[in-house]
Design a protein around this nucleic acid. Sequence first.
DNA 1: TTGTAGGCGTTATCAA
DNA 2: TTGATAACGCCTACAA
Lengths: 341, 341
Amino acid sequence: MNKKNITIYDIAKEANVSPTTVSRVLTNNPLVKESTRQKVLAKMKELDFSPNEAARRLTKPQANLIGFILPDITNPFFSQIYMEVEKRAFQKGYTVLLRNSMSISEVESTYLREFTERRAACIVFMGGRINKTKPSEDEIHEMQDVLSKVPIIMINGKMKGVKSANIRTNEEEGIRSIVEHLVSLGHKKIALLGGVKGISSSDNKLSSFKRVLKEYSLEFNEEWQIYSDFSVDAGRKAMKKLLEKEILPSAIIGINDLIIYGAFKECRDQQIPIETFSFVGFDDIYPSDIVHPSLTTVNHNYEVLVNEVMRTIDSIINGKGNGKGKIINTQLIIRESSKES
Amino acid sequence: MNKKNITIYDIAKEANVSPTTVSRVLTNNPLVKESTRQKVLAKMKELDFSPNEAARRLTKPQANLIGFILPDITNPFFSQIYMEVEKRAFQKGYTVLLRNSMSISEVESTYLREFTERRAACIVFMGGRINKTKPSEDEIHEMQDVLSKVPIIMINGKMKGVKSANIRTNEEEGIRSIVEHLVSLGHKKIALLGGVKGISSSDNKLSSFKRVLKEYSLEFNEEWQIYSDFSVDAGRKAMKKLLEKEILPSAIIGINDLIIYGAFKECRDQQIPIETFSFVGFDDIYPSDIVHPSLTTVNHNYEVLVNEVMRTIDSIINGKGNGKGKIINTQLIIRESSKES
DNA sequence: TTGTAGGCGTTATCAA
DNA sequence: TTGATAACGCCTACAA
């Protein structure tokens, strides 16, 4: 493919200037005489020259690179956030490097190492270990090690003893808005489906759920709180278990939207009219406006969230401190799936 | 954050060995005596050393990097493919660099340049210019320039005069399977919604649509072929226009699944029962199994497709030629949205 | 406005 | 089994 790598030396020789001058052209240094610049540019084009990124980088202490670790980009919740960050970073001349961890700790380790070796300007982290209520000692140590070299921004997660910047959505408030909405519709029997014990986003939602129920003197029925996971399939399974109970709730909250999609599926499979229940999800991913019935759910205020992420990245990169924690308020989006009891 | 960058020289000094030996440890060179290796490793840990990726790369002619350009990662069609490629590349020790072009030519140019400068091992390209029936001269030249340095793999696209590897799904066959399915259900009046004139995936589907209709002696009604775009919103608009026609079709094909999601929405908004029509999409993105009614659509055989992409990447990287074109057959997935006429 | 010289942190070559 | 030395390709004082 490539015969021989053309360097600035080749250009210099051909254009009868020094390599320094070629370099100046490359860096848009205004000191170069226009005619010289043109001569050099012409030669670069003629020889099909392309500067070597690695060599360039070697002269800088850090790269204009933002590492982004998340569990799974096919999940709209993550892709919506990632996409927006990439777009804005592009405008600022930053490069974003996406890595899917599948929330597997070893994979996360690999990527953390990679970003460190690439001298990333910062790392944005979602899911996985920062979502564990009890991460392992190793996981904590590793994060601390990385943090001593590369700033980390955690979205919807945190880690004890790790001094990262944290941005999170107010999940407790989100759950409160759901419960209050359902209560206002006359619901008294409410289920909570999905999630995994020990994952903070589940734990937070569950404890908030219990708290708000109590405030409204409503019963928390353990039979109606069913763990499973975070996927559509997990939603089916949870719904299936729920439908086997003697007494059924009138409203069902999903740990996220996907769980409810699964619940819909299960109802249809069992020929149970979906209108039998009121459903509310969490995340407001874009299919929630498309599924039928359209789903009442909690929106993360993606724009505010991403703004905050970018603000934090900026302040980190420009050395204005680490940008401390920030909590983003949620917004309840009411659609067809929740109705009067 | 980082006090001073620790280099192999620092390690060497501290461990009383030469930098060369430290380098050997880094590259797992078996020539190093075990005790020396341990000594060096200990120092590396002690000083919290992390090798500089850029310096490493500088000594190699090319990076173990696969560039991936696609229009929009929030579209499941792309994220499903990307995700799978990333996973497999990871296992082979390759790094994938994702870039969202939004199909904007200037953005594509930026990324093509970036990948060239990073000395990527190859570039996987989807959407944008490779999907234009008539790309501009500049676009073609640029691709040729890049191609002289970095091999390009095009998925579902091609470019005249650009000798890239091409992998594409058999869209013509996919459309055929849809039409034959609808015909077998007794449909005679079939619409085609969405897409943009001049984008090959639209043009291909349209011409195949016309051809197959002819074979079955069915009318192609221009009123029922409505361009718009490729999004959910585009689907609504196209459906709206269709519903204004005097005579309506009994079946509706979408250029992709998203178009049909939009058509569903429009029907609901206008209180028109969705069962009025049979709907068939194209792509089989995962929500198509979740929306209601679940959508009959054409699956790309993602696994076969990705296998082929990986095989091509391998053969390119290992210098076994450029891996020529390959066509992947599609599969019709029949669900609830298509019924007897 | 241009050029010389040294440095960035690794790896590869050749000796020892 | 180890070490000196020279690349790798670019950038940046400093000098001219």
